[in-house]
């Protein structure tokens, strides 16, 4: 039983990390109808930029490498880089493709993925780097002692970060002017334009926010597994989450992430041994697919009626 709970909790916590990446997708999809395949590349780009600045800043400024100033400055610079990336994407890729079919935009973001990966590695090199957030990846002693359940402090921290990020975004969207404009744009581009909401500004904001989410996700994932090219695959992990949760729903991304995280770990542990293991790569997809056959619009998506 302990073991089951341990696997379940571990799965749920890693599910939070999937949800974090999925969140970036949902933001962009809601605001611009773009299914941004490059989200994974953005996670990689953000993490690499952060680590890169962490490496070069001490030299430039004559500071200790582990000082808080370097950390926050690197964070700020990486965030600025993500904003620049977002604006450039809006200007160069999205604006010329306005009103194109969604599939065209999707394929354009596959192209964007390659560009972002190329730029990131060209700027900072392709070496694997460590990233230290100062939280150790060890079991929480109290849980271990009393219940013999191993839950990593780091995972808990990551989950906490993700939760606060979601809360922050929710507040931002619900109570600020930009948030209201954003929801209007998500509902109907044309109508939003007609009442004077600057569509392009909103898109830039959204891409910047998605960049911020990518940065946070990249730092957490990077601290866990090292900052390396494999970070781009987080996008592939997030896709089944989106199928499950629906492309437009923030709660969907969270719940979907939890379900995928928990079920894939459970499947790996309890089903994996019978088929030779390594099923984590495709199990979430199959689960999402099976789910789609029952409910094509996702957990929280709205049923769509074709009007003719």
């Amino acid at each position: 039983m302990q073991f089951f709970i341990e696997v379940l909790v571990g799965g749920l916590l890693s599910g939070v990390m999937y949800a974090l990446v999925a969140l970036g997708f949902v933001l962009i999809y809601k605001a611009s109808g773009v299914f941004n395949f490059a989200q994974g590349a953005m996670v990689f780009f953000a993490a690499l930029t952060f680590v890169g600045f962490q490496e070069v800043l001490p030299g430039w400024l004559g500071l200790e490498a582990d000082s808080g100033v370097v950390f926050w400055l690197a964070f700020l610079l990486a965030f600025i880089a993500m904003i620049v990336l977002g604006i450039a994407t809006e200007r160069i890729v999205l604006r010329p493709l306005v009103n194109q079919p969604h599939i065209t935009l999707f394929m354009a973001t596959i192209g964007l993925t390659y560009v972002v990966e190329g730029i990131a590695q060209m700027a900072w090199g392709a070496n694997v780097r460590g990233l230290d957030l100062g939280i150790v990846d060890e079991p929480i002693a109290w849980l271990m002692d009393n219940y013999e359940i191993g839950v990593s402090k780091f995972d808990l921290f990551a989950a906490g970060m993700a939760a606060s990020l979601v809360a922050l975004l929710a507040i931002l969207f619900q109570y600020t002017k930009v948030g209201r404009a954003l929801r209007a744009v998500a509902d109907d581009h044309q109508a939003a334009l007609s009442i004077g909401i600057p569509l392009q500004t909103i898109w830039r904001v959204v891409w910047a926010v998605a960049g911020f989410v990518a940065l946070v996700a990249g730092m957490i994932w990077g601290a866990r597994n090292g900052v390396q090219f494999a970070l781009t695959f987080t996008a592939l992990k997030a896709l089944p989450v989106l199928i499950l949760g629906g492309f437009t729903s923030v709660p969907g991304a969270i719940v979907g992430g939890l379900i995928i995280g928990a079920s894939e770990k459970l499947a790996e542990v309890y089903v994996g041994p019978f088929v030779g293991g390594g099923i984590e790569g495709w199990f979430p997809y199959m689960l999402a697919l099976a789910f789609l056959l029952v409910r094509p619009e996702g957990l929280f998506g709205e049923k769509h009626i074709d009007r003719v």
Partner: peptide, 24 residues
């Protein structure tokens, strides 16, 4: 060689975007 392969990534991706925009 690293530069060339990254450059290739950028050119590939850029061309895709270019074609989708200019000549779908």
């Amino acid at each position: 060689a690293g530069f060339v392969s990254n450059f290739q990534l950028i050119v590939f991706g850029g061309l895709i975007i270019f074609f989708l925009i200019v000549e779908p």
